[in-house]
Nucleic acid binder design. Structure first.
Lengths: 190, 190
DNA sequence: TCCATAAGGTGAGTCCGACTCCGCTTGCGT
DNA sequence: ACGCAAGCGGAGTCGGACTCACCTTATGGA
């Protein structure tokens, strides 16, 4: 159903406006009712639902770009760093992304810690990205083998939700612990 | 407000019935509307709300016993095992508890991964229990120091929510990775 | 240029679940 | 046995996601 017809001009405008309004609302506050988003975009809720199946689908769309970018990182990191360093950097990059705004953290948490089918694609993509990292590390004997990306993803899920004072330090610590834990059973243990 | 007066007989009965109904509903299905719980207990929702501030408070109460038990474990484990072994066992014990029913997992997740004030007590208690474990481990040079129980708690949060096939294996793996990560930077590194 | 028409937009309304309120009922101390 | 505070019932409110029957308009073909 994409591109059966190229989308009428007003429709495209509204879709864009909705995404912009949602992005604005999410990045800042983290939530926002569909009503609020529609109002910001100067359309009615019905229009919102013409373009996005559910509120969650809108959230997913808003963060798709950024998640895709995040998922592209492992391949890039692996060309510039040793696999273990690439893994470490990626985990910290994730924390960094989660920190850009309440919304991004929540989106990442939804992807990592829920099983909502709306995020299936993003979840699969991130799991695959992590798989690559882990496989490269294992092949080099720097990371224990037998761990799937999905597992690591899930382990990281918790750190993206809350925004208490000092949150980021904690997140970095957790990422570091996980990283060390992943190296612990490696062939070249050290 | 506890024990200003010993609670009228019918009130005690209803309170008990509500807890029983909720326990039954939660352990099996994981959720249940307040309406459903009230119906099961053969009282009206108003009665439910006389006894419990919010739905969450009811959840907290249902699992208080079990959480308290869980929190008592570290002290016991430390008298029988080396600190590192005690830590490992506790992490696995947590996974075990999360596995007893959808509800218990959800409750643990709420405690560990949210900041709902309803779970403040449980959260504090668990963090303290973990602190003890970590401090003992650090004192013996078996566990890296500088990690607070709260951080570990948060890291574990993600593993208690989902119930996909093979979930428990994943949870055990994550717990193991965390455990290894916690030992990684220890004084007697090995 | 103009019309037919299907794509798109609208917003009051539905649904659902948590929570409230107030009048009625009842356990229990005297 | 009586009074009344404690307790209970359940219809009602509220808030948020989502729907649908009807209206508006962009667009492409004559």
């Amino acid at each position: 159903m994409p591109s059966s017809r190229p989308l009428r001009a007003d429709a495209r405008r509204n879709r864009e406006a909705l995404l912009a309004a949602a992005r604005e609302a999410f990045l800042a506050d983290g939530d926002a009712t569909v009503e609020e988003i529609a109002r910001r975009a100067e359309v009615a809720v019905g229009t919102l639902y013409r373009h996005f199946e559910t509120r969650e689908a809108l959230v997913a769309e808003v963060y798709r770009q950024e998640v895709a970018e995040l998922c592209a990182a492992p391949a890039r990191l692996l060309t510039h760093h040793a696999p273990d360093e690439a893994l470490r950097t990626f985990l910290l990059l994730l924390v960094e992304h989660a920190a850009v705004g309440r919304g991004m953290g929540e989106a990442l948490e939804s992807i990592m810690a829920t099983d909502s089918p709306v995020f299936d694609d993003a979840r699969d993509e991130m799991a695959r990205a992590l798989d690559d990292l882990l496989a490269a590390g294992a092949a080099a004997g720097l990371v224990r083998s037998g761990i799937s990306g999905r597992v690591v993803l899930r382990a990281l899920g918790g750190i993206c939700g809350l925004r208490a004072k000092g949150w980021k330090d904690d997140a970095v610590r957790i990422a570091t612990i996980l990283y060390d834990g992943l190296r612990y059973g490696a062939a070249n243990h050290g």
